[in-house]
């Protein structure tokens, strides 16, 4: 353990994890919003909207996240020179959040759609029968029940998102896995300890998410 404790003084490990947490929170909000819109597209009675939703999911779900991240940094920033902030770090942070949101929206969409499948057809029919058109019926009757049925797959997506924030290192964001690489580079003798420290850090963030998901899906289940 020689020099291990000094690592915490030398490197901002907590700060790096805080970056992963911020990426997770913002990308979760972004992907949830976009994913919900896509899910509504995919269940809508309008064929062209359904086609947009289906294409998006199939293209994005099958593209590696690293490629989306690198494409953002090299093509959109590098070639097209689109900048979100003059602050170098903040700019790449925004890129990372957008890439993570775009990628996980496809999974959020599918999770919500699986939730929609748990809602009996009769619920939508009853909503239509009292005179609600598609969007109000989706918003007031179908989606609230679908989300409760989708908590477990949404939780899985959130956990995957949390771990995928490490890919933001590809967009030069100073987060935990990038820090791990640096620490190992300069302290190869402590490699195993450093690796375990980062791994345990992720466990501390992710395990409560799983527990919360299970608890919520029981608590919010729709009784039929």
């Amino acid at each position: 353990m020689n020099g291990f404790l000094e690592l915490f003084a030398e490197y901002d490990i907590i700060g790096a994890f805080w970056m992963n947490i911020r990426l997770t929170i913002l990308a979760a909000i972004g992907s949830f919003a976009l994913g919900t819109v896509l899910a509504v597209f995919r269940i809508s009675p309008v064929g062209s909207l359904r086609a947009i939703g289906t294409s998006y999911v199939n293209v994005v779900r099958n593209t590696p996240l690293t490629i989306i991240m690198v494409l953002g940094v090299l093509a959109v920033w590098g070639q097209l020179k689109i900048t979100f902030s003059s602050d170098f770090e903040l700019n790449f942070f925004v890129y990372a959040v957008i890439a993570l949101s775009i990628y996980h929206a496809a999974f959020v969409c599918e999770a919500i759609r699986s939730g929609v499948n748990t809602v009996p057809q009769g619920q939508a029919e009853a909503a239509r029968a009292i005179g609600l058109s598609f969007l109000p019926a989706a918003r007031v009757v179908v989606l609230p029940q679908a989300l409760r049925g989708a908590i477990t797959p949404l939780g899985n997506t959130l956990i995957a998102l949390t771990k995928n924030t490490t890919v933001a290192a590809a967009a030069s964001v100073a987060e935990a896995s990038g820090l791990m690489k640096t620490m190992i580079e300069f302290n190869p003798n402590l490699m195993v300890s450093i690796f375990l420290t980062i791994a345990i850090g992720f466990c501390i963030i992710v395990i409560p998410m799983g527990l919360l998901t299970t608890w919520l899906s029981d608590k919010l289940a729709v009784a039929r």
Binding site: G122, Q123, E125, A126, A127, V141, Q145, R148, V222
Partner: peptide
């Protein structure tokens, strides 16, 4: 409806 279809939530 036959199956009532009350809004379950």
């Amino acid at each position: 409806f036959q199956s009532f279809n009350l809004f379950a939530h």
